[in-house]
Design a protein around this nucleic acid. Structure first.
Length: 262
DNA sequence: ATTGTGGCCTGCCCGC
DNA sequence: TGCGGGCAGGCCACAA
């Protein structure tokens, strides 16, 4: 599913959409517009203008519009959203999404003067578009997270460690798959109290957070983690062979090793 | 404020 | 062969 690595790939793909005059916007299902934004607002803000920059903050892709207005277009991809520019997407397959490509899944379409398009394909409508999304509510990006920022994000919290790592207001960019992968690599149980990690455990977690994101970015997606193939009934820990535990932590299905994750 | 819970979206897969 | 139920997870509203 689109977590930080996928959205980073979308950001790079979106570079091709910059500087091209926009002639039309299509949002067939108004439910795909989020927040207080309305369909007409998006068309008004985009048509006749160009995108100036593509930025990523956690799982949020922001397309800045040219000009002094400072308007921004926010794209969220949920679990099943893909970005396609001029017919080509950096991500062809998403775990838990369909491999088919139905025209009715084109939820957001931008048409450029040159005939090209930028399209968000999202079968399940879990993503959405929003004008001028609030970026202040997001925590520091997981890829640029310093050890001190990780410490602060977890400090004094009684919530489960995994829940806190996935709280986009504390750390932006981690979803369910990557959270399981990072905790598995770091040898920490997802159910640990977030604020109760020792200094050594915090250092270990930070190191594996960076290492995991580097690996998954290089391999091409959040589904390429070492733990992912074992996230199923009867799956065994790739490290020590223990049958994995499946439990719900913070409302999310979690797979972890009861032997080496403590 | 913090933490937990349930609902929403819909394609897909399993069992009957 | 068709059908129904369960599942997937990001995000949000709401409750305690």
């Amino acid at each position: 599913m689109p977590e930080l690595p996928e959205v980073e790939a979308y950001r790079r793909r979106a570079q091709d959409a910059l500087g091209r005059p926009i002639t039309a916007v299509g949002i067939p299902d108004p439910r795909y517009v989020r927040g207080t934004t309305r369909v007409r607002d998006v068309a008004d803000a985009l048509v006749g203008h160009r995108f100036a920059a593509a930025r990523r903050h956690g799982k949020l892709l922001v397309l800045d519009l040219e000009g002094a207005t400072g308007r921004r277009l926010g794209l969220r991809f949920g679990m099943t959203g893909r970005l396609v520019v001029d017919g080509a997407g950096p991500v062809d397959r998403l775990l838990y999404s369909s491999t088919r490509d139905e025209p009715r899944w084109d939820r957001f379409v931008v048409v450029f003067e040159d005939g090209g398009t930028l399209v968000v394909v999202d079968p399940r409508l879990l993503g959405g578009v929003e004008l001028d999304p609030c970026e202040d509510r997001l925590g520091p990006d997981a890829l640029a997270l310093s050890p001190a920022q990780l410490r602060d994000a977890l400090a004094a919290s009684a919530a489960p460690l995994k829940t806190r790592l996935m709280d986009q207001g504390r750390v932006a960019g981690l979803g369910n798959l990557i959270a399981d992968e990072v905790l598995w690599r770091a040898g920490l149980a997802p159910t640990r109290r977030a604020g109760a990690l020792t200094a050594a455990e915090l250092r270990r977690l930070h190191r594996h957070l960076r290492g995991t994101l580097d690996d998954l970015l290089a391999r091409g997606g959040s589904h390429t983690g070492d733990l992912v193939p074992a996230r199923r009934a009867g799956g065994r820990c790739p490290r020590d062979g223990t049958e994995l535990t499946r439990s719900v932590v913070g409302g999310r299905t979690s797979w972890w090793c009861g032997t080496h994750q403590r």
